[in-house]
Structures are given as C-alpha cells and as structure tokens.
Design a protein around this nucleic acid. Structure first.
Lengths: 197, 197
DNA sequence: TGTGAGACCGACCGGTCGGTCGGTAGGGTC
DNA sequence: GACCCTACCGACCGACCGGTCGGTCTCACA
C-alpha cells in the first residue's frame, strides 16, 4: 500500500527493491508475492507482466553481482602482481563489493541452496570459479615459497570466503568501520598468517 | 511412504531425523509437514501428538548443540591456559563439534533469522556469548602482547566464526580430511596470523 | 473382563499461496 | 478514426499449507 519510492522509478525497479528488502528480513519462502507488490505499489497482474515467476525474481535479485565480481577478479589476476599483492587486492574487492551489496548478497547466499536448476547453475559455477582462483593463488604462493605452508590452500580459501560470505550477517552500513578498513584488516590478518618466517 | 529406519526407532526420533534431512536440503519453509511425516512413516495426527507445531520441530532440531558447545567453552576457559592454547582448544572444539553435527548446524544457522521469538532468543544469546568470549580472549592476548595487533579482535573473531559457520556448507563426512585435521589447520593458520614477530 | 491412558490415524478445516486471464487506459503510428 | 502495443489491473483459480479432532488400537494394571 505505502509506495516507498518517488514518482519516477519504474515499477520493475520498485519491485526489485521491495523484494530485496523483504527477502533479506523475512526470507524468500516466507515472503509472498502479495507482500512484494503491496510495498512496490502495483498489482499481481503488473508483477507477472514484468516477471515470469517468483523464482525469476530471486534470480534477478542477485543479478550481476557475482559476474561483476568475477570480472574484477580477472582484471586483478591480469596484472600479474606478486601473490601477496594479488591476494590483498582480491580480498579488498571481495569485502568492499560484498559490503556495498550486503542485502542482495545475503538474500542470494542464504537462498541459493533452493536454486539447483539450470538458471542458477551459472551463478554457482561463477562462485566456484572465484573460489578456485583464490585457492590456486595461495597454492602457487606456497609453491614458490612466498607463502608459508602453515595450512592447506583449501582451508585458507574456505576461511577467506567464510568471513566474506558471512559479512552480510553482521555488517551494518552505518557502523563504526568502513568496508575499506575491514578489508585492510582482513588482508593484513590473512597475509600475516601466510607470512614465511 | 518409504520408512527409512529399522523397526525399533521411536516415531519421534524418526520424525527428527527426517526433518533434519529435509530441512537441510530444501530449507524449512519449503518443507511441508506432510513431506516429513511421509518420510518418517507416520501421519499428521501422530506428528501433532508428539510436536506442538512445525516451529517446535525446528527448535528441537538444533536442540542442545549450542548449549553443549557453550558448556565445553566454559570448561576450556576454566583451565586458564595461555591465550594461544586456549584459542587452539576453542577452535578445535568448534570445528569438531560442528562437523559432527553438520546437518543440524546448517539447518539452524540458515533458518535462525526466522526465529526471533522468546524460544530461540536463548539460542541467539548463547551464540553471542560464545562470540564475545572468543573476542575477549583475543583482545586480552593482544593486550598482554602475546598476540600481534595485526587486525582488530572483532575482525579476527568474525573470521573464525565465518569459517566455522560455513563449514556445514562444504564439509563432507566422507571427505579426505578428518575434522581434527581441519581443526588443526585452522588453529595453525589463525595462530600464525596472531603471532607476534 | 473392565478400564484408562498414551500412541497413532486420517478426513477435514480455513486460509493463503503462486499464478492466470479477460479486460482497460494511454500513447505512438498511419 | 482505426490500429496496435505495452503497461497495468484485480477478480479469480486450484493446490497445498499448517493444524484440528473424533475416533481406534494396544497394553498395563486392576
């Protein structure tokens, strides 16, 4: 009922915004299409004119976030910096971009297990691609002797993605720490753990 | 329909087992009571004879996992070991106990946002208690100079719980690495990052 | 043999869900 | 003015949801 947005935003955009809000706070299943359209200020018919299904909406919520991250990953790798510098840049980008889209990241990540069909298989593949790149990076750093072998590349990779994926759960945009500072701290900590003494 | 269990298991236990399985793979909302009872091999009436509601079932799934973890935390803290040794024991217990109850941990943690009522507020409090204890431990280690100040205690705490909470997503009981080894690697890595050089 | 209690059954309830569809309002084009 | 197309409306649909309830079966104990 209460249309939140101003005059000029498109119905489609209003639906997306409302859906992210509701999905993030209530979860996907617990949010009805009716709730979404009430907040977005349109009707069932209008909704289904723009979106094929409720699932399609969830799919779109995540949208290009992961692919944009992947693009920037490739750009960082292309610079061919030393492993430590590469890893620092990768971690920083992950933290900053996840914090910037915290709500969307939260929704998709919490709900992604429901989406094993072809639609989202692409997203999961992208996710794995990112994961593999980081692991390979750590492994090569360990092979060259730049990184310590204190733990396996797998475990360290899971650790990095663990924090990053959970970040939407505790990060608050207005909080004391800026994303850039979080990123620096995390990179410092990870690289300290990898330091070859 | 297909009752998975043998003869002697109680209906109540069969329901719990079936529910954890289904919740873990499909999510709580997407799993109907009918699905649960079909797998457990009883009927609606039987289910509601044992459980007050579907919510109560979710509540029970997590059961005493977190409180048992909390008890062991207190036991470890009571030993009053050096921060590094304490942290190692804490991490080991977290990893091993989470791996041992991976499915249950996954369900509760993914679904816990739905449970803001009094029932589960206690669980969230326990979780926070654990979180605070680890942070305090790191902070005191940093204050005494045993740990490096490479990153804030907050960030390091979030990192530890990040991996642990995500562990149910990638850990496979039959996998190559035993939980104890994972725990050792993680503790090694964290402590390497905290080492004061 | 009688009786009471717990375990369990299954038809049924009101309500809500995601999704459909015939219709309309308005603007661009010829 | 006739036409189409896109955006949007809202009453409606069948399916299924969580939960109820009167009843049955079994068995311990009297």
């Amino acid at each position: 009922m209460t249309t939140v947005t101003g005059a000029a935003t498109s119905a489609r955009q209003r639906v997306l915004t409302a859906a992210v809000d509701l999905f993030a706070t209530q979860g996907y299943d617990a949010t009805s299409v009716t709730q979404v359209i009430e907040r977005a200020g349109l009707t069932k018919g209008g909704f289904y004119h723009h979106f094929a299904s409720k699932d399609a909406l969830l799919y779109e919520v995540y949208g290009d976030l992961i692919t944009a991250q992947l693009d920037r990953l490739e750009a960082i790798l292309a610079k061919r910096l030393a492993p430590a510098d590469t890893l620092r840049e990768v971690i920083t980008d992950l933290v900053v971009s996840t914090a910037a889209s915290a709500q969307r990241a939260l929704v998709f990540w919490r709900e992604s297990h429901r989406l094993d069909d072809g639609h989202t298989a692409a997203y999961r593949a992208a996710r794995r691609r990112y994961h593999d790149a980081v692991r390979k990076l750590i492994r090569s750093g360990q092979a060259s002797g730049e990184f310590a072998r204190v733990a396996s590349a797998d475990t360290i990779t899971f650790t990095i993605f663990g924090v990053v994926n959970e970040l939407p759960l505790w990060y608050r945009p207005g909080g004391r720490k800026r994303p850039a500072q979080l990123a620096t701290e995390l990179a410092d900590f990870v690289l300290a753990g990898l330091e070859n003494t």
